[in-house]
């Protein structure tokens, strides 16, 4: 099964880097997180006891087959959904509902269409009680960071998908969260824009003090972005492996041509494939094979 594809040995530099990361303060602690939803007459377990720790300024990706509860996990950490068991602590404080220590970027942009780009970024700052002038000043700085200062007065509908998501990132970062939660933020973008956004995000993340928890179904994306990758399986959602990506971050950004990343990707694929197979055997009968022998008479 999956164990055959091992990760390559970590280089000295990589090992030193992970040692540094793990020495840092723990920002997010998830212990035994259980999430059940009513289903028919009984209950279905979405998350069956998830444990996870992220350190300060760490970039952690969560991957898994569809239905593994990765979205539920991040929404529960955000405080948008309630758990049935376990604890979520952010810098040691338990999570009850949404809070400004955790900001979220959604797949569907969720910019306020009636507010200009600038006012969107100001929103969280105003909610925090900042005077308007100060909120304006800070919001412009965040817009400059994501390169959208010239669009401060535009409405979201006038922006492209990639620009919208940059505004959403600026809006989330503006409230200076300890952890930035990103729920498949780039999956609605086309391939070229997505590659550019990935580079942008790493660039921004390295400039500021924020931990990122990033959900994706795109394994390439996880390998390019993450320090560590949490692999989940479905039915119920459980941790398969917490993988350390054995690569540094070269100046030009990571490349999938790097043999270490190739190996990581191969291992991720085998892990997910194995569990997808297992899941499919569990509850979903394979579609029947229909032979269309009436079609294509006389065709070789």
């Amino acid at each position: 099964m999956s164990g055959s594809l091992a990760l390559p040995e970590q280089s000295e530099d990589v090992r030193a880097r992970f040692a540094r990361i793990k020495a840092r303060e723990e920002i997010l602690q998830v212990r035994g997180l259980v999430k059940r939803v009513p289903s028919g007459s009984g209950e279905r377990t979405i998350l069956g006891g998830i444990d996870l720790v992220t350190h300060r300024r760490e970039f952690l990706c969560v991957v898994g087959p569809s239905g593994c509860g990765k979205s539920t996990l991040i929404r529960t950490i955000a405080g948008l959904e309630e758990a049935q068991g376990g604890d979520i602590l952010v810098t040691g404080r338990p999570v009850h509902g949404p809070g400004p220590d955790r900001a979220m970027v959604f797949q569907g942009y969720t910019l306020f269409p009636w507010l200009s780009v600038l006012r969107n970024v100001m929103f969280g700052l105003e909610m925090a009680g900042l005077p308007k002038a100060e909120a304006d000043r800070q919001a412009r700085q965040w817009l400059t960071l994501v390169g959208l200062e010239p669009y401060a007065d535009a409405y979201p509908a006038q922006l492209s998908g990639g620009m919208k998501q940059r505004v959403a990132i600026a809006r989330a970062l503006a409230i200076q969260p300890r952890i930035l939660l990103m729920d498949e933020p780039f999956s609605a973008l086309d391939a070229r824009t997505r590659a550019r956004m990935q580079a942008y995000l790493v660039d921004i993340w390295r400039k500021i003090d924020v931990t990122i928890l990033f959900i994706t179904h795109d394994l390439d994306e996880a390998v390019l972005l993450a320090d560590r990758i949490l692999v989940l399986k479905a039915n119920p959602g459980e941790v398969v492996e917490l993988m350390e990506v054995p690569a540094l971050r070269p100046p030009g950004g990571r490349s999938l041509d790097d043999p270490a990343l190739e190996a990581t990707l191969a291992r991720l694929e085998s892990l997910i494939h194995a569990h997808e197979q297992a899941g499919a055997e569990d509850d979903e009968p394979a579609p029947p094979v229909v032979k269309l022998d009436s079609v294509g008479h006389g065709v070789d």
Partner: peptide, 14 residues
């Protein structure tokens, strides 16, 4: 009203 907007606003402190 788009529910996602309410969620986004809540994560921003509204």
């Amino acid at each position: 009203v788009e529910y996602a907007l309410l969620e986004a606003a809540q994560t921003l402190g509204a």
